[in-house]
């Protein structure tokens, strides 16, 4: 079933991380990503991993859900690991057979890269997508980017488009499921036959799906106009975002993480690699 696909899905709950201001979480994720790319020491990487473990505990999201988000990138993870393992040249040759040469530096780089990607994916899930509803997320992005309005970037329009797109993804998935069921009830089969037959079998799904999507877009435009929507100018909000002391603390921890990572890169205790 299409419904089983987890693409960075919101996981409703009541935790400090769920309650935090979405802008805080965007800033925190940015800090985390920057920190991950600055890391050059084993201790720094360990610190990043520990930070994530702490925030994961605070988010109260089942570990299984977080790990299920890693599944789609397992291939990329393995691929980067192997590429780095075989193609990194260094000084200490550990193993060589025919044209294959593995250096100590290669193992280290491959491991660092794999852990970096792993932390990146699980981190953005915990900081953002699992704990923030898509609507909150677009609100936060709109507000964080609002200074760009000064140079005539249509920030509001973009965020409205993003909100609508996100809002309708589940609807479209549901719609696809429904149409697939309806055509299956008429004896259609989507998993048998050769490539051309399978492609042809998609026609009875895609045409009704497009017809519905266009009709829905049209209806939505009319409904918005009926409620006097005229873009972002002078528009007020029902829920106003406010930072709490906890938010400042979280953002501070993000900045401190970057500082600590950079410090560890240059200190001998950081075990530079």
């Amino acid at each position: 079933m299409l419904k089983d696909v987890t693409l960075g899905q919101y996981f409703p709950g009541e935790s400090p991380l769920h309650r935090a201001d979405p802008r805080t979480k965007v800033v925190l994720s940015l800090c985390y990503i920057i920190a991950l790319f600055c890391v050059k020491s084993a201790l720094g990487m360990l610190l990043c991993a520990l930070t994530l473990v702490c925030f994961h505990a605070a988010s109260r999201i089942p570990l299984r859900t977080v790990l299920s988000g890693v599944k789609p990138i397992l291939f990329i993870l393995a691929f980067t690991f192997l590429i780095n393992l075989f193609w990194t040249r260094g000084e200490t040759l550990l193993f060589s057979w025919k044209f294959i040469r593995i250096y100590r530096e290669g193992i280290v780089t491959a491991l660092m890269m794999a852990v970096r990607i792993l932390l990146l994916v699980t981190g953005s899930g915990i900081f953002l997508t699992y704990t923030t509803s898509p609507i909150m997320l677009t609100d936060a992005i709109e507000q964080l980017l609002s200074p760009l309005k000064k140079i005539k970037v249509p920030v509001h329009d973009f965020s409205m488009m993003m909100t609508i797109a996100l809002r309708f993804i589940p609807t479209l998935i549901e719609e696809t499921d429904r149409i697939m069921d309806a055509q299956k009830a008429r004896g259609a089969s989507f998993s048998t036959g050769g490539l051309i037959r399978r492609a042809k079998a998609l026609i009875p799904i895609l045409i009704p799906l497009f017809v519905c999507a266009f009709k829905r877009a049209d209806d939505l435009a009319v409904a918005m106009e009926c409620r006097c929507y005229r873009g972002g100018e002078g528009r007020t909000r029902m829920t106003r975002l406010r930072f709490s002391p906890a938010d400042y603390l979280m953002m501070l921890s993000g900045v401190l993480l970057i500082a600590a990572v950079i410090l560890l890169n240059h200190l001998p205790v950081g075990i530079a690699l």
Binding site: I179, A182, Q183, A185, R186, G187, A188, P204
Partner: peptide
């Protein structure tokens, strides 16, 4: 045979005749 809610949204073929024939053809 199952006719789902609002089944008119599952129509797709060029003509009514071909659309009705989808099931028997399958």
């Amino acid at each position: 045979g199952l006719v789902m809610q609002y089944p008119e949204y599952q129509l797709f073929d060029e003509t009514v005749e071909k659309d009705i024939a989808f099931g028997p053809r399958n």
